[in-house]
């Protein structure tokens, strides 16, 4: 059950990254949320068979990771983690969509495969951007920014509690699993039979802990509103950040940069 604990500390690490200092971290949360949304829309709105024109968009996560001093390997791993799920979702594309689109020598590549890869790239980009957003801003601040941009409070509050609840659940799971492991003496315990009661027990315990924490929050004056400590205002830097990236994304979305570059090269080369 070590994997559970590892997964949790990994998740917590994402939250902690948001506390470091960098030019990106210092930006207003709303600016980052806005850019992330525009980025995701630009990426997702491409044609389902698009490949080459998606690639320039990798510049955004790359620049953000570099300037925010985030550990690149950590994000690569996080993002790689989701690819099996995406592949599973797109599994049937190559089966249903057999029309050949490209030829590499004698090999014909069907539209299904292209759309599968395109989907994979798009989810890597958008999920990566979301991770980077949380890693540079913090979940609380992201929710607050959403609220300040007009998302109903009931929704953002739910998100926040969900986020907290995941940690509580993971914590309790880790503890219960360890207790069980230590007392099953390396064997499988009582096997699947004990898992039912274990899961029920876990649910109750998590519930109780979540309730205790909520009590503690209310005891310290919580009345349904999270305050982020980092109070920032949009400012000129925020505006430049938003305008700069938006300009780039729209340009990349409208003009076929790889195509133009390719044409340039083939034009130059005889």
């Amino acid at each position: 059950m070590l994997s559970i604990n590892a997964a949790v500390s990994d998740l917590k690490r994402l939250d902690l990254l948001a506390n470091s200092d960098s030019p990106i971290h210092a930006l207003d949360a709303r600016a980052k949320v806005l850019v992330t949304i525009i980025f995701s829309i630009s990426v997702v709105s491409f044609d389902r068979y698009e490949l080459a024109r998606l690639l320039p968009f990798f510049i955004f996560p790359a620049v953000m990771i570099a300037y925010a001093n985030l550990p690149p390997l950590y994000f690569v791993k996080k993002i790689a983690f989701i690819s099996p799920f995406v592949l599973m979702m797109g599994l049937f594309n190559p089966i249903f969509d057999r029309a050949v689109m490209y030829h590499i020598g004698p090999l014909g590549i069907s539209g299904g495969w292209i759309s599968l890869i395109s989907m994979l790239i798009r989810s890597l980009l958008t999920v990566g951007a979301a991770f980077i957003l949380v890693g540079t801003t913090g979940f609380t601040a992201v929710c607050q920014a959403l609220e300040r941009c007009g998302t109903p409070q009931i929704f953002t509050l739910q998100l926040l509690f969900l986020h907290r609840y995941i940690f509580v659940l993971a914590d309790e799971t880790g503890r219960t699993a360890r207790a069980r492991e230590l007392r099953s003496c390396g064997r499988k315990g009582r096997g699947i039979a004990s898992f039912g009661s274990l899961a029920g027990h876990l649910l109750l315990r998590t519930w109780q802990r979540a309730e205790h924490i909520h009590t503690a929050m209310r005891a310290r004056g919580f009345i349904g509103r999270f305050h982020a400590h980092r109070r920032s205002h949009f400012g000129v830097t925020g505006l430049c950040f938003v305008l700069g990236w938006t300009f780039l994304f729209i340009t990349l979305r409208i003009y076929d940069l790889p195509g133009i570059l390719g044409a340039l090269f083939t034009g130059i080369l005889p």
Binding site: L16, A18, N19, G138, A216, M217, R220, G221, F222, H229
Partner: peptide, 16 residues
């Protein structure tokens, strides 16, 4: 319950 000790201690005063 907050991500860092500082934020946790700040939680109450911010609510005030």
């Amino acid at each position: 319950f907050m991500p860092t000790v500082f934020e946790d201690v700040a939680f109450g005063p911010l609510n005030l």
